[in-house]
Simulated assay, not measured.
Amino acid sequence: MITSRSEVFFGRAVLIAVLVLTVLPLVNMLSAALQPADKNPTGLSIPADPQWGNFVTAFETGHVLELMLSSTWIVLCVVPVCLVFATLAGYALGNIRIRGGRFLFLFLVLGLTIPFESLIIPLYYQIQSLGVLNTQWAIILPLIGLYMPFSVVWMRAHFIGVPRELSEAAHMDGAGLFQELRRIQLPLAIPSMSALTILLFLWTWNQFLLPVVLVADPLKRTVAGSLTFFQGQYASSIPLLNAGALIIIMPAIIVFLIFQRQFIKALLQGAVKG
């Protein structure tokens, strides 16, 4: 299909506009973070004397290291569990085509339509009954369940696109289900699994609502959930608040920039299969 110059120009203009709208808030936050701590910046401006020490102050007095360790522990508990169960379930629904699989798939799709906010009250009482309220498990256990519908649907979309001839050839060579999964299916699923890992990491790292509601101690929340802690501590210092926020969101930006190729590869792979 031949693309006209006007279409190319319009597409590039839209991408540039989206890029500017995405980067501008970060630039504004950086500008505010570099202002003197006792100053209240009102707009985007280049500071005459950048106060890089604001980041050190925010890191030390805001207990950022403890917050990142807490968030890392939550990520390490949520992401691998979701990835393993979603891969096995996606393989069962997409490749084996188990009985009742269509009903289970529709049930999972229905789970995608339920917003987190509508589950906060029942989750609170359920977590309280389990005796893990105000602990990190109050965040880990709900997130595993809430992420599972999307994760299974994502992995099913990959496995259902794998040619059936590969499975038939593996079975003719005497391979069992687990041998086929380990030697054939998993290597082919690495792009989809990598993209899912990135999404789960970003969603868990940036999870805000559940930690605020279910955990009272800010140092046991995710880093995003501890933004209220920063806001309360630096309410009178906008530069320090912006410095703390930038420190908190930087790991998520770095992870996405490092693994963006794998993420795009998985999306393109799904588009080609579709």
Rank of each mutant, 00 (worst) to 15 (best):
M1Y: 00
M1L: 07
T3A: 03
R5Q: 10
S6I: 10
E7Q: 11
G11E: 03
V14F: 00
L15G: 01
I16F: 01
A17F: 02
V18C: 05
V18M: 11
L19W: 01
L21Q: 04
V23S: 07
P25V: 02
P25K: 02
L26V: 15
V27A: 13
N28M: 06
L30Y: 07
N40T: 10
T42N: 11
G43E: 15
L44A: 04
I46N: 03
P47M: 08
P47G: 09
A48Y: 13
P50F: 02
Q51S: 05
G53V: 03
A58Y: 03
H63S: 15
V64T: 09
E66W: 02
M68R: 14
S70F: 09
S70I: 13
T72I: 15
W73R: 09
L76I: 14
C77D: 00
V78K: 10
V79N: 00
P80F: 10
V81P: 02
F85K: 01
F85L: 13
A92D: 14
G94W: 06
G94M: 01
I98P: 04
R99H: 10
F107N: 04
G111D: 03
I114E: 05
I114H: 05
I114L: 11
P115K: 13
L119M: 14
I120N: 05
I121N: 03
I121M: 12
Y124H: 13
Y124S: 10
Y125V: 14
Y125D: 05
Q128E: 14
L133C: 11
N134I: 05
W137G: 08
A138K: 00
I139V: 13
I140N: 14
L143N: 10
G145K: 04
Y147E: 00
M148N: 04
M148R: 05
V153S: 00
R156Q: 12
R156C: 01
E165L: 11
L166Y: 09
A169L: 05
M172W: 05
A175K: 05
G176R: 02
L177S: 13
F178G: 07
F178T: 12
L186Q: 01
L188Y: 09
S192M: 01
I198A: 07
I198R: 01
I198M: 14
L199R: 07
L200N: 08
L202D: 12
F208K: 03
F208E: 06
P211Y: 01
V212N: 08
V213A: 11
V213G: 10
V213N: 04
V215M: 13
A216S: 15
A216M: 11
P218V: 01
T222W: 03
T222R: 04
V223K: 01
L227E: 06
T228C: 00
F229E: 14
F229K: 14
Y234L: 14
L241K: 06
L241E: 04
A243T: 15
A243M: 11
G244S: 13
A245G: 15
A245Q: 10
L246R: 07
I247K: 08
I249D: 07
M250R: 01
P251Q: 03
I253M: 05
I253Y: 04
I254P: 02
F263Y: 15
I264Y: 09
A266I: 14
L268G: 07
V272N: 03
